[in-house]
Design a protein around this nucleic acid. Sequence first.
DNA 1: CCACACTTACTTACTGGTTAGTAAGCCCGT
DNA 2: ACGGGCTTACTAACCAGTAAGTAAGTGTGG
Lengths: 215, 215
Amino acid sequence: MSEAIEQAAPKAKRPTRAHRREEILAAATRVFGSKGYHQGSLVDVAAQVGITHAGVLHHFGSKDKLLWEVLEYRDRVDVQHLEGKHIPGGMDLFRHLVTTARLNADRRGIVQAYAVLTGESVTDGHPASTWVAHRFSVLRGEISQAVLALATERDVQLPDGEAERAANAVIAVMDGLQLQWLLDPDAVDLAEATRFSIESILTATLGSTVEITSA
Amino acid sequence: MSEAIEQAAPKAKRPTRAHRREEILAAATRVFGSKGYHQGSLVDVAAQVGITHAGVLHHFGSKDKLLWEVLEYRDRVDVQHLEGKHIPGGMDLFRHLVTTARLNADRRGIVQAYAVLTGESVTDGHPASTWVAHRFSVLRGEISQAVLALATERDVQLPDGEAERAANAVIAVMDGLQLQWLLDPDAVDLAEATRFSIESILTATLGSTVEITSA
DNA sequence: CCACACTTACTTACTGGTTAGTAAGCCCGT
DNA sequence: ACGGGCTTACTAACCAGTAAGTAAGTGTGG
């Protein structure tokens, strides 16, 4: 899917199609992140890679399609630091979530893009809404699975729907903390607050202290 | 502040200034909620009250000022169901938060407006960003105060900054749950999920079971 | 009590700006 | 020499804000 991203210096050759698309996706992530989808224009995106907005459309066809690829691009970046490509389960999943939060504290642009697009997605007919809804439902499934695994591991019998409630709370707290952190980075330590919140929810759900140790 | 809103049928007189402004604010809340601030136009707002966009500007001067008044309007609506106008402390505050969540489940428009504008506010130079940041800091203060009150009440010694961490988690979970609920109302029971999440955080923070009983 | 002065609540018409998308053509590398 | 990658040029739509005009109301002095 991504070959030939190297070749940085030698002669300023014409960029390959794949490389150019990657550049545009990175630029679009920055622009949509800092201005939102509707307010961020193709002209802005194009300017960042030194071409005109028609050049961007040449590669992506329409603004909507560009957004879709940006969202998929984020997914790719999100899991690229995992060794095995599969998402972990049980306690490893929560460790992964905290680790991601720690990494995110140094990737403001991506966090901002995610927050802005998620917020915008609740507007009527927004092109990102199905993507966000789908993402939530996938996360919900994975996290509630992990909660159930922990409960089984600790011989705890959970009331019906409790794992889903905990999963919703975990997702909510991560998104909410990102918002607060974006608006006032000094008020929230993203990684620490995420760890604290998830631990709290798991501890209360499982009825015994849960600690998430660093990876 | 609001006199002569009655007089429904008789002759279709000219609406008073106060009444007209109220109508426009309600319309703007709907429009900004369903389309966002940038994408929602003054023409949209004006059409909902049956005037032109210039008529809206006559009352509010500019789109930015209209937004500001919409945000203040939401604050007013938010606390109007409280008997005494002051915000409660201690356990009453958490009861209030859950009650508000329950009411919000039947006020989708307002929740949507809040979510959309909060999300948009993290974009660069957004007119709502200072309002949202201020709102967060006020909430943070009130909630951490309430957590401290509960801790004192139960003779619990909290580590330094623990009350603020809990407050951040509570705020985050409420915002995050609203997002999920807006995108998929069937996946989240707003009031129930809010109660569960806040109880979890408080229970874990205070080290003993906390239950939030209905008001 | 009523006419004249003034204010309020708009409308219509316009300005200057920005937008996504299209069409046609140019240039460079292969 | 040909095709991909791009530019220039354009369109049609939409935007917030301004200016000027109008009709309906309100207050007041005689």
